[in-house]
Design a protein around this nucleic acid. Structure first.
Lengths: 182, 182
DNA sequence: CAATATACGGAGACACTCTCCGTTTGGCAA
DNA sequence: TTGCCAAACGGAGAGTGTCTCCGTATATTG
């Protein structure tokens, strides 16, 4: 890849991070190009769709997910606390910008989504939590990681759309946790 | 109101119902006007925003909600069955067209939303289910109707976005029900 | 220092939202 | 019935966003 192409690619990702953070996932892509100081054509050549750009933005986010689940898992405590701790972390991780929760959760089962690898990271992290809880026989039968992702993702989507704060989200997560624990 | 105005209003509502059912809540409003055989100006004069149009579409839906909760409540059975029965009904009611679950659920707490009265109907119906279950001391403490709406609405949103079928939604609703029952 | 493959940029086609205002019409009063 | 005019209509067009195309510029290679 040519040096100028690489440079523009980085600029676009940085600009997109900024713009999406400020204005949410539905922000104008022309605005992203403008902010990056490149033409619209350059943006679309590097990132044919909004989702592909999203995927690039989330590249570094993968590490954050893995760090977060590590941190949650080292903590000793009751299964309920572990589960709730992961749920709250999960919500925070997918709520980076407006529209994020719905976007990520809807891509969860979709093989053809450009951000599928990112969803797999999140899903794998959740699976580690599930495995731990199953070791301790703390979970009901037939509870799958993907269901957790959908339920918690659903709560995060609603919270995102309705501007709920952590205090309002907490009891919703508690219901889900209690419904999953043996 | 002049006769032609009334006629165009009805035509617009009918066209919107059609178009939203076919293409979801994000469908083009110009297309609605076209389908109704009126100019764009006429549409926007009658319905200044998409949400106001949505509200008009839902006028008849109010009766369906009330009938549905009546039907659910006459059924004798275990609290869990009652709750799940309402949850499935609820999901069906708000999933009339793509984008509906998110739209309705996000308006749930918003006093200024044009569809707030419709949300109140749904919320009141849910409250009746909550009241019944509390009579039977079947619910945990501090479970509120609005939380049910948010949780079930969240599941419906995810199902809507990911095209989940009833079989995939059912276990998610079961988790929520189990988390709410004493 | 060419030569050339690679990448750039932004004009412009197309779609959607919403407004403005010249034109038409329904309903009433004479 | 006729004439008036408030009420309603409609669609052109301004504003904004998506995405493509292709003439132009430049990084790299020999």
């Amino acid at each position: 890849m040519r040096a100028d192409a690489l440079r523009n690619r980085e600029r676009l990702i940085e600009a997109a991070r900024e713009v999406f953070r400020e204005q949410g996932y539905d922000a104008s892509l022309d605005e992203v190009a403008r902010r990056a100081g490149v033409g619209a054509g350059t943006l679309y050549r590097h990132f044919p769709s909004r989702d592909v750009l999203m995927d690039a933005i989330l590249q570094s986010w993968v590490d954050r997910v893995n760090d977060a689940v590590d941190k949650v898992l080292v903590h000793e405590g009751a299964p309920r606390d572990l589960l709730l701790s992961w749920f709250e972390t999960y919500v925070a991780l997918i709520s980076m910008h407006k529209g994020g929760p719905a976007k990520i959760t809807s891509a969860m089962g979709d093989e053809s989504s450009p951000i599928v690898t990112k969803c797999q990271v999140l899903s794998a992290a959740t699976q580690r939590v599930v495995d731990r809880l199953e070791e301790e026989h703390a979970l009901r039968d037939r509870i799958e990681a993907v269901q957790m992702c959908r339920l918690v993702g659903g709560v995060a989507s609603v919270a995102d759309n309705s501007d709920l704060d952590r205090a309002a989200v907490r009891p919703l997560l508690e219901v889900i946790a209690d419904g999953m624990l043996a």
